[in-house]
Design a protein around this nucleic acid. Sequence first.
DNA 1: CATTTATGCATTTTT
DNA 2: TGCATAAATG
Length: 786
Amino acid sequence: MRRIPIRRSTTHTQVDPDPEAEQRILDGLNDKQREAVTTTEGPVMIIAGPGSGKTRALTHRIAYLLAAGKAQPRDILALTFTNKAANEMQERVEALVGDDARGMWVGTFHSSFARLLRMEGDKIGYSEDFSIYDTADSKRLIRQQMKGRNLDTDVVKPRSVQRMISSAKNEMIDPQEYAELARGDQQEIVAEVYPAYERALKQANALDFDDLLLKPIELFEQHEDVLEKYQTRWQYVHIDEYQDTNQAQYVLARKLSARHKNLCVVGDDAQSIYAFRGADITNILNFDNDYPDATTIRLERNYRSTENIIRLADSIIEENDDQIEKSLWTDNAEGEYVALMEALSEKDEAQKIERRVRDLHLRDGMEYGDFAVLYRTNAQSRAIEEALRKENVPYRVIGGTSFYERKEIKDVLAYLKLLVNPNDTASLQRVINYPTRGIGDKTQARLQRYAQQHSLSLWQAVERVEEIETLGTRAERAVGKFRRLIARYASKAGTGSVPADELARDLIQDAGLLSELRKEHTRENLQRWENVQELISALAEYVESTEDATISTFLQEVALMTDQDEAEEGDDKVTLMTLHAAKGTEFPVVFVAGLEEGLFPLEQATQEKAELEEERRLFYVGVTRAEERLYLSWARSRYRYGEQTSNTRSRFLEEVDSDVVRTEAGGELEQQTDRFSAEEGPSADYDEMDPHYYRQDLSGDGGATGSSDGLRRIESTDGGGGRRVVYDEGHGEIVPGAQVEHQKFGRGKVQSLEGEGDKATAVVFFGSDVGNKKLKLKYANLRVIG
DNA sequence: CATTTATGCATTTTT
DNA sequence: TGCATAAATG
């Protein structure tokens, strides 16, 4: 059963001081934590390492405020990044002070400000039934805007336009400012799409994820009185995972805490892994400057992991330059060595993991639920899933395509959104001809054109089908039928005479969704049908258990749900997830898989120091999830993009404290410290190369290099374990003076050679136009022609 | 208009 | 590889 985990009770309870509870709350803490909990005046920053009980500090602090009579529930605002964190916080506070701690606002940034907009959004032109567009919806909208404007989708793809607009919003750059700043073809296109996209959202009464933070700022800036109301109300503002805040979140925190100045943030700069979505690590690094009278408390003692794991983690993070000084320590036992596993392929890696899991399960009696396998990209889960499935090891995958991203679920949600907010054009387009009802592309295009000409929303055009002359009778009747269907249910939804779940059930029945799913009796369809039923049950339960529940609030909450929030604990399964999803979790046994150059750290991230440091922090987050045992693994070859690639092990493995690591054979880890230190950052030539060079030579057709005369890399391992890469010399050698051909630069003459193995480079002179180029042999794929 | 077949494109990570 | 949109065909 899926729960929509929100508490939006409007009744405020009055809590009396409770000295006994206060004592109990403080008793469970060490001195440092107690200081963090009882420093309740003024800005406070709690810098807390992994496993130091920072969530504990935060929840105990809130409980303390209530028990000590310093605050009432309604005075408290607590913001997190995931629903799961918010739920845990609410539950733990209730466990400490009793379940009458209702009336607090505890929730994610996004859902809290969505709620605020529901209440106040009309002041800036949003009715409370607004739709929330996820990334896929935004992308779709952007694609349409681009097509409608004949913008070249080859120069920038809609998905990167979406990303660029999103980052602009994260930095609080509006369309006008963006247009002034735009440089280059891509940005100019974005500058044109951005305002159109904003208008389209507005017309659909829809907000994207970024808007949920930006619009409240707009609201506060345009309506002083609204800001004052909330500033006054929330005497205590708490923010978890502060290192993940972006510009907009920073501004909101500042504004809301400006009156009482009781802002308490908790975070760990070493665990900042969300820069790609606009998180600004300087928010936490500069907290002292932003709030000069702030108290800083450091929680450095780790309660989670063995000493060996902590030592490894420390040696990882030491490599980073930009960070707040802090040193982890623990009283825990030294524990086992960290194990390094080397595999031949991703299948082999998966099998090794699976064997290790079963071994520990059978011999040491560990539960399956004690294991987590972490990886860099979602695609890596497949091989591991297969290996576990083969041996009947129970597992669950967090993330990937979540429940709410499934097609059948999105279809049902789109119907519901349409009832509540008919102007939601994205939803309308999704369902207008699904299941097919004779409203094809042509008809839709005509509706669209009519809407545009009369500056109506698409739904308004549907409402006036009769007036559209370009439509034939058949199309007109089809559209009219659809209109009546939606209108009938919309009015039912409006009066609230029918329970929401019943309404939803009837609607999808009438719309033909269910019969569509039953048309073919495949396993997939059965699963889909069950998913739809589950969604409706979730709706029923939500309406049942939540005050002021409407279909609209359900839809808004659901839009902000992720699978991570669903991870029900308790059942005994191995957990598979990305390193990002792992933040905030802990497991007795952790595997970090795929420690290979190009995968972790990702190729793209190795060019910039800042990005490389973020990858390193991600590694740090991964290893610090482990309580007792930690396994690191890498595979010599791996399928990526449907092609076999061969890999070298991650540079991270060359950096870690090798004293605490043992290979499978039990030997010490031998490191090559100079492997990457020689050249930091990009070499210019490398940059200029086609990013898809490796695919070109593998496709083998039409290109300059057939597979037989291309330069092929052969790996050899010499006896001592050090790796060397030699180059096949079957078609001539790359030696100074040799004539070679390059895919892009054409013919040239080798001037000199440098380095060995993967690092081997050649300087090649390609004629006076191009000049000398320094190329990595590993990538350049030079063909020797004489 | 709907269905079938072809092409192409993606893999970072997520609220 | 495997999904999603585009072209081609009925």
